[in-house]
Design a protein around this nucleic acid. Sequence first.
RNA 1: CGGGAGGUAGUUCAGUCCGGUAGAAUACCUGGUUUGGGACCAGGGGGUCGCAGGUUCGAAUCCUGUCCUCCCGACCA
Length: 492
Amino acid sequence: MAKEITSRAQDYSQWYNDLILKAGLADYSAVRGCMVIKPYGYALWENMRDALDKMFKDTGHVNAYFPLFVPKSLFEAEEKNAEGFAKECAVVTHYRLKADPDNKGKLIVDPEARLEEELVVRPTSEAIIWNTYKGWIQSYRDLPILVNQWANVVRWEMRTRLFLRTAEFLWQEGHTAHASKEEAIAETEQMLDVYADFAENWMALPVVKGVKTPNERFAGAEDTYCIEALMQDGKALQAGTSHFLGQNFAKAFDVKFSDKNNKLDYVWATSWGVSTRLIGALVMAHSDDDGLVLPPKIAPLQVVIVPIYKGEEQKAAIDAKVNELMKQLKAAGVSVKYDDNDAARPGWKFAEYEMKGVPVRIAMGARDLENNVAEVARRDTKEKMSLSIDGLADNVVKLLDEIQQNIYNRANAFRQENTREANTWDEFLKLLDEKAGFVSAHWDGTPETEEKIKELTKATIRCIPLNNKQEEGKCVLTGNTSKQRVLFARAY
RNA sequence: CGGGAGGUAGUUCAGUCCGGUAGAAUACCUGGUUUGGGACCAGGGGGUCGCAGGUUCGAAUCCUGUCCUCCCGACCA
């Protein structure tokens, strides 16, 4: 199987598509805009999901599951939210098919089976969840409600890309209800921190925490917080969002509670989510022209061992050593595979596991055994080392940590190099055209200016970084006064 | 949703203009030799040419419709 992918320099988009397909993460499907997540890609998602799920539970959240369908009347209750999503909703109008009288063996939608009320396939679940919460909440003693759900959602996208934007995708959505504004804001911020922690420490993906401008805000939210990451082509990608919803949904669904003084008030809300889009971010942040580069902490397979031998006798000797090593690695919690498939030669396997981004490869041959060593290759730097078999498992565990750190450091250095300040409009244009990346610049704070800049440059305000340095300046477009810089970029 | 390109063996593609028994490489299967960066020899299997109609004695090829993918644009809480 000769697998080659387009180089990043030649065509970054094509490189991404090739990589997803050839590394076996996903496939296209017979449904427009929908992908099949293949076992290797799903294993990656499972690892990400498990790590996040534990973080949610450690912060007091529980999982639940709400329906896929949302009655239209519920969906439209929170007007801004409904309006925001209206253009990309799939809608169920009928509940039955029947045999086509004019076309044997075919089916048609039964016109008799029109639903009295259409069902919206959830693009997000605020509506159905807040309709439910109404029945769960009466007093402050019922609060907070800290619920998360792992689910699929559908957004009818016109232009799709594997993992980055598909019509159906997997995600988690947290929906919490609180007795006070302060508590809800604290929750919103806490979950943003959880996301940033996950991105940096598990995905080795450095992110900027920030707040969205009103233009970019989630429809129905008071404030949208986000983590923004930078991809290797210099485009930004929103990797997660956490919304402070104020009392908007409580008002729309009439969810009130009695406080300690028996005074009625609307409940305060948050919602937050990350999706399979993170896999796209992971691929574009770390991988290279030879294939995926995966952080060891979420790689489906951390170590692969390839034997190199002539004849059964050598194979048996290698098997014995490898079995011992495998035992030690597994005991240390390392996922490891021994690929002694005789149908493929070592060189083929090397290329294949590089394509799949397995962080560490160990090759063991007769020559190594004589010297009591093994060849250890790391995927991130492609460096090869000859290490003693004694204590090899321990050294591999250390190496995995080092790789995790190195991938992060590399991505972090890239982001720093590609975050630049622009002080004039000419500088701003020049940076966007020549270097891409984040451009930190003053903005006068008006939606009109933001819109104008987007029109002229296709760059949007990714976020106003949290704990942003306050400094006097002049808006890069209008020259009006500004108190702080914001991060601009072209984005996915 | 508009413009462009494409869909033929598991994969990458040729064949389509000019209609006449469906091809190559690679992968796969069997046997053998091999094994330190995508092995070699010999033999073998595999495609209703995206799908549905139509024209024709005859359609991968011409016509109509439709589905899926890629690129550009619009859109994208």
